[in-house]
Every structure is written in C-alpha cells, then in structure tokens.
C-alpha cells in the first residue's frame, strides 16, 4: 500500500511515445463503511499497434481497468496518459470528448440501437463530434467503416436482421468510424458461438495488421486471449503476468 506510485507518476507524464501509460493506478470504491480496492497499483504501457489481451477471473479488476482505460472512470490515485494527454483528472465532460475522439468501444452485448439501420448505428459517435460534420460526410464515413468490415451490403439492415457475428462487426465499424487511437473490446466474443467468435477475433487481428490500430481486449477465455500479441493477466487488482505472444 505504498504511495510511491503517485509521486513517481506525476513527473513522467510529459514526453511519452506510448499510446497508453498507466502509472501505479489505484481505484477504491467506498461501499458504506468498507472500501473496496478494485485496482491496487497497476502500471502498464502500451505502444501503438499492440494487441493486448487482458485476462483474469471475475473480480480480478479487469473491468475496472477497462473503465479507466476507456475514460469512463478516473483513477483514485495514480496517473493515466492516453496519447500525449494526462486524462486521470479530467472532468466528466472532458472525458466524453476524449472518448469521442480517441477511443472506440466494442461490447459483449454489441449495444446496437434497435430498429436503427447498421449505417445509422455506425454513425452514432459522429453525432457527438465537435464540430458536427454534415450529414452527407457522416453517412460517407459510416459506409466506409462498414465497407472495411465487409458489411456494405448490410448498411440498411436493422440489427435484428443481422447475425450475431455481423452485429458485432457493425459494432466494430462503429468503434472505428471516428478513427480512434485505441480500440477497447470488453468480452467481444462472450455472446457468440465459438466459430463466430473466432471470425470476430480474426477481423480484429486483420484490422490491426492493416491499420496498425492499438487494441486492448478483455476476456476470461484463454483461447481468445491467445489472439493478442501480448497477454496481461490480472488477479486481485494487480497485474500478475505480462508476456509477449508473437
């Protein structure tokens, strides 16, 4: 429980070639009288183009890590730099802007808007870009992201007209549409059968190869974790192993 991390962290923010740099990040939730230490001092650097898979049992802190990496939450202590920017103390509204510009999310449950076409689903992040781009530009970007996922012929389909794999690829297209620095995938194959899950993973691998995009993927399945170029294991709020997997 040392506090060194915080002290060290503050001085190392300025120059950073990494996409991600976590410096002794801690996250503590106050639950009434008890404190839950979800992250107990996590340090992690990720370079551009890496495909990092984070594994761990439930309660290991990987979801909390995911929320902090995704700028949905802020660390209680420590520092988090995304790109060249320290985002660990930003306000909620500033974080929303960071998420919009720099992060693409892929969720276990796809989180597509029902009764809304694939193209319009992909367009969602563009609706919150500032300044707002014209509708024609937004549509064009959405279609090219779908094209990248080989779904251009499904652009006007609603989610319920698409297979699970196709839905997840629409979600990936949505994650890509704003050209983010980082893709965060939270159990993206959790709702899919093995074959479809493999298909989605291969899509991600291919995407990284083609676009040199940085991906962090959280999973509890070792087979899925094996797709990463680097595998990070977590337990009890700490990183227990961090190995290259080329």
């Amino acid at each position: 429980m040392s506090r060194f991390g915080e002290v060290v962290g503050t001085n190392e923010v300025a120059v950073n070639a990494n996409v991600i740099k976590l410096d002794n990040v801690r996250k503590t939730y106050e639950m009434g009288e008890t404190s839950v230490h979800a992250l107990k001092g996590v340090s992690l650097s990720v370079e551009e183009g890496e495909f990092v898979t984070v594994t761990g049992a439930s309660g290991s802190g990987k979801s909390t890590l995911m929320h902090i990496l995704g700028c949905l939450d802020t660390p209680s202590e420590g520092h988090y730099s995304l790109g060249s920017e320290d985002v660990s103390r930003l306000s909620r509204e500033d974080l929303a802007e960071i998420r919009n510009k720099k992060i693409g999310f892929v969720f276990q449950g796809f989180n597509l808007l029902p009764r809304t076409s694939a193209a319009e689903n992909v367009e969602v992040p563009l609706l919150y870009s500032r300044p707002l781009e014209p509708a024609s530009v937004r549509k064009q970007k959405a279609l090219s992201a779908l094209n990248l996922m080989r779904l251009d012929d499904r652009a006007s389909h609603h989610p319920n007209q698409l297979s699970g794999g196709q839905q997840q690829r629409v979600a990936i297209a949505r994650a890509l549409v704003n050209d983010p620095e980082l893709i965060l995938a939270d159990e993206p194959t959790g709702n899919l059968d093995t074959d479809t899950g493999r298909e989605v993973m291969e899509t991600l691998v291919e995407l990284r190869a083609k676009r040199n995009i940085t991906i962090i993927l959280i999973t509890h399945e070792p087979e899925i974790a094996a797709y990463g170029t680097r595998i990070v294991s977590m337990k009890d709020g700490l990183i227990t192993s961090d190995t290259s997997n080329q």
């Binding site: 995704g70 949905l72 909620r92 509204e93 929303a96 802007e97 998420r99 919009n100 510009k101 999310f105 969720f107 989180n111 808007l113 969602v124 992040p125 609706l127 919150y128 870009s129 949505r174 704003n178």
Partner: peptide, 16 residues
C-alpha cells in the same frame, strides 16, 4: 438506459 450509456460512451455529453 442502455442506449443512453452507449451514446455517452461514444462521446455524448450531458447536454447532448
């Protein structure tokens, strides 16, 4: 609620 969560995750601010 889930839609709102997604919109927020992709960058929607409170005012949006």
């Amino acid at each position: 609620t889930k839609e709102i969560g997604l919109r927020m995750a992709t960058g929607a601010k409170k005012t949006d």
